[in-house]
Design a protein around this nucleic acid. Structure first.
Length: 798
DNA sequence: TTAGGGCTATAC
DNA sequence: GTATAGCCCTAA
């Protein structure tokens, strides 16, 4: 059944209006969706013409209902002009004209034009101006018949039957969803008996989401938009998206007209998805009774998932616990997935949403939370979308399985349809008996010859065989589980990195206090406050950030304690780590400087953020945690970036610069043989790494001092300007001594590229020129600085 | 992208 | 404490 065809034949063009309004409710409107609808619907010009009229009518109704704004929307006015209306006319007149049915020729003109018409402005306009219940007003007014034009408008708009049915069925996003669902449940029998059209309308209504979910991009977008409306209604976007997708998958596979539209309206009040399922079931049941269509598509022979779905729908008493229990009990029961999974998934997603909604729906005032929220949001979004895909896959598998079983039953013996393969010990593939592999899933009837599998049979750890369907479903489950764990780990990593930022800020605050005694405390605080939220964290950890930060810092410092195998109470001020750190700091820090007692953490974080596997700053624990961290170019410490393979798995932002001409640069050096043997031998190109490795010296954990990372490491620079919770703190690179070879190539480069007056030296070119020699972390600025130093030491002739 | 000034860590 | 090397920031 093609919903749009029905839609068109139904002739209820008001539905178009509702569609438009529906779309208009979305935050982001993709006009291509409407265009898709337009283009795929037959006899569209007429409908479009009606839509045109109704748009204008809507505009008029807007006026009637008090909207004083008469913004002249280009698209709308253009359309209006096409059908001979002018905005300046009075509402009554316009309405009258609408009802007078513009001539067919006018409509034909308007139709093609409308196809090119960008509905977006209109939608935006409607969204901006329409009262939330404007459509309801529209309907009510038409149905009440109090307006002089109501009667004819009612007839013209196709609301007659709706009126007679006594219910409004579409578009009442603000209405009580429960009442709505109840109304909807009442609709079919009465309406349908009066006129075929209403029934069509019902199907149209039901089919709309179905069309949205049919798989192509446009319809997918529309599904997303649909969910956008739900989001607007404080619904759980993902849960609904998933549920809708899930159901749509069933629909697309089985051509089941599950009224997701009605579901969407139900959902706002249905806190529990099972309740929704129950109501869906009600719809479904009604429809089945009315049309008898679904029965024909739900063969009783082995299509247990379909029947299960139906049962689930009809059984409004099912509750979450039951289902979850069943799932827990039957976690590996793929055969039951078709009925259980949609609910399960929705439940899971709902849980996710519980976490997620605040970050989406509320504005976090502090940047930290925003950043964290962003990270988590993106992570969850990614995970959820991926989950959706796999949930759909899982459902697809179930559907395919049921189809497969059905088709096999149809191809095989009739008895199979009733008794199943398992009971008869027949292969589901070849319908022959023999030594069969039975699927371990308790309710999966599938049995198959090993040879019929088409691939080598595999058994799980317990030696159980799972049919391909169940195996795939199981794999998806495991994958999703793993993703969930990864997501959690990512959050923890985010918290960990955030900790680095916190420590940094605290360290900065401490330094400001200790190094700027001239600054009054208030001034210092003020400065810090101006630069970010350092001050507030320093001053009060109980503020909204502080609590979380302290929690994170506690976690981190607990690692210290665990590592030291000492049960030291962790208190902000009395942390021994802090004391040790302070003692080892050459800079005299007052006792107050350890206010936050997180200095060790800071130092460790600093090293953590500089963490490359190839460069250690002394703390292996941190290093392990930062495997995937790759600081920005300026934040890179001396790390041999010229060896890209080492960067392989890292998301290095500092790309390996392929030498412009390696041989040229090195030839320059070799040609003149400028490298003293001693220099070359004692200071090979690798020397920077060696120099850095000074810091790598193993530090015994048994000694207190060993917690103090070498000062010759990356440190945070004092922020001079805004410090807005960077997920990656600013880092100071390690010093990388220049090798003689580097100096040589630098000299060559300068001689080669510098202009006559040496006013401007293209350091970037020189860097590329000598990239085979220069240490990978060098920048053009480094070259410049080095050249400056070299020139300081000796005249330019050097 | 470059130049210049300033900052920081280290060596002495 | 000072000198120095290397790094960072900012203006042009």
């Amino acid at each position: 059944m093609d919903g749009l065809a029905d839609f068109s034949s139904a002739g209820s063009s008001l539905l178009w209006l509702w569609i438009i309004e529906y779309l208009a409710s979305f935050k982001e409107v993709d006009t291509s969706i409407l265009h898709d609808l337009i283009e795929t619907a037959p006899e569209i010009p007429d409908d479009l013409a009606k839509v045109t009229r109704e748009m204008v009518a809507l505009r008029c109704l807007e006026d009637l209902f008090g909207s004083s704004d008469k913004v002249n929307n280009d698209g709308l006015s253009c359309t209006e002009n096409k059908v001979g209306f002018a905005l300046s006319e009075s509402c009554e007149d316009v309405l009258q004209q609408i009802l007078q049915e513009t001539s067919a020729s006018d409509l034909n003109i308007a139709g093609p034009e409308l196809l090119k018409w960008d509905v977006h402005p209109f939608i935006m306009h409607k969204r901006a101006l329409m009262p939330k219940c404007a459509l309801q007003h529209l309907k009510d007014t038409i149905l009440e018949g109090t307006h002089p034009l109501a009667a004819s408008l009612k007839e013209s708009s196709g609301l007659t039957c709706v009126s007679e049915c006594g219910t409004a069925r579409v578009g009442d996003l603000d209405h009580n969803a429960l009442a709505m669902s109840e109304k909807e449940n009442l609709l079919p029998s009465t309406c349908e008996n009066r006129d075929g059209q209403p029934r069509d309308n019902l199907h149209i209504r039901n089919m709309l989401p179905f069309k949205r979910s049919r798989g192509d991009m446009a319809t997918r977008d529309m599904a997303a938009h649909t969910n956008g409306v739900q989001e607007k209604c404080d619904l759980n976007y993902n849960a609904k998206k998933h549920k809708q997708d899930a159901i749509s998958n069933h629909q697309s596979a089985d051509q089941i007209s599950v009224p997701t539209c009605g579901k969407e309206m139900v959902e706002p009040l249905s806190g529990r998805d099972v309740a929704v399922a129950g109501r869906e079931g009600s719809h479904f049941s009604n429809q089945s009774q009315d049309a008898g269509l679904e029965e024909s598509q739900f063969p009783d022979d082995g299509c247990d998932n379909c029947n299960d779905l139906r049962r689930l729908g009809q059984n409004g008493d099912v509750n979450d616990d039951q289902i979850q229990h069943n799932q827990a009990e039957d976690g590996h029961n793929a055969a039951r997935l078709p009925r259980a999974e949609p609910v399960q998934n929705a439940t899971v997603d709902e849980a996710n949403i519980t976490e997620r909604v605040p970050s989406v729906g509320t504005q976090h005032e502090d940047t930290e939370d925003e950043s964290r929220g962003e990270v988590e949001h993106s992570c969850e979004e990614e995970t959820l979308s991926d989950n959706d895909a796999y949930h759909n896959d899982r459902i697809d598998v179930a559907v395919k399985k049921s189809h497969f079983l059905s088709s096999q039953a149809a191809l095989g013996h009739d008895s199979l349809a009733t008794s199943g393969w398992t009971e008869q010990n027949l292969c589901v593939k070849c319908n022959k008996d023999g030594q069969l592999l039975s699927c371990s899933s308790s309710t999966c009837p599938l049995a198959v010859h090993e040879n019929c599998l088409g691939f080598p049979v595999k058994f799980d750890e317990k030696g159980n065989f799972h049919c391909p369907f169940c195996a795939y479903t199981l794999s998806i489950s495991e994958y999703l589980e793993a993703k969930k764990r990864a997501s959690v780990a990512r959050k923890e990593l985010a918290a960990f990195m955030q900790m680095g930022s916190v420590c940094h800020q605290m360290d900065l605050a401490n330094k400001l206090h200790s190094k700027d005694p001239g600054h009054s405390g208030s001034n210092g605080d003020k400065d810090i406050h101006e630069n970010g939220n350092v001050g507030e964290q320093e001053n009060n950890q109980e503020n909204q950030n502080g609590q979380h930060l302290r929690d994170v810092s506690d976690q981190l410092c607990q690692k210290h304690r665990a590592k030291k195998k000492k049960a030291e109470p962790l208190h902000d001020v009395s942390d021994p780590l802090c004391q040790r750190h302070s003692a080892n700091k050459k800079k005299a820090e007052t006792s107050a400087s350890c206010v936050n007692a997180n200095s060790p953490c800071r130092e460790e974080e600093a090293n953590a953020f500089s963490g490359r596997d190839c460069i250690s700053n002394g703390d292996k624990v941190v290093k392990e945690n930062m495997d995937n961290y790759c600081p920005s170019e300026r934040g890179l410490e001396g790390q041999p970036e010229r060896t890209p393979p080492e960067c392989g798995k890292l998301a290095c932002t500092n790309t390996y610069v392929e030498p412009m001409d390696d041989t040229e640069a090195e030839a320059e050096l070799q040609k003149e043989d400028v490298q003293p043997a001693s220099s070359e031998s004692s200071d090979p190109p690798e020397s920077p790494v060696i120099a850095l490795n000074i810091d790598e010296e193993e530090i015994s954990e048994s000694e207190d001092d060993k917690f103090i990372i070498s000062n010759y490491s990356i440190r945070f620079r004092r922020p001079k300007t805004h410090y807005t919770y960077p997920p990656i703190p600013q880092l100071r690179r390690k010093k990388v001594p220049w090798t003689a070879k580097e100096e040589e190539i630098l000299k060559k480069g300068v001689q080669k590229f510098a202009s006559v007056d040496d006013r401007i030296i293209p350091w970037k070119k020189i860097l590329e020129f000598g990239s085979s020699v220069f240490f990978g972390g060098r920048t053009a600025i480094d070259l410049k600085d080095k050249w400056r130093n070299m020139c300081k030491g000796s005249p330019r002739s050097k």
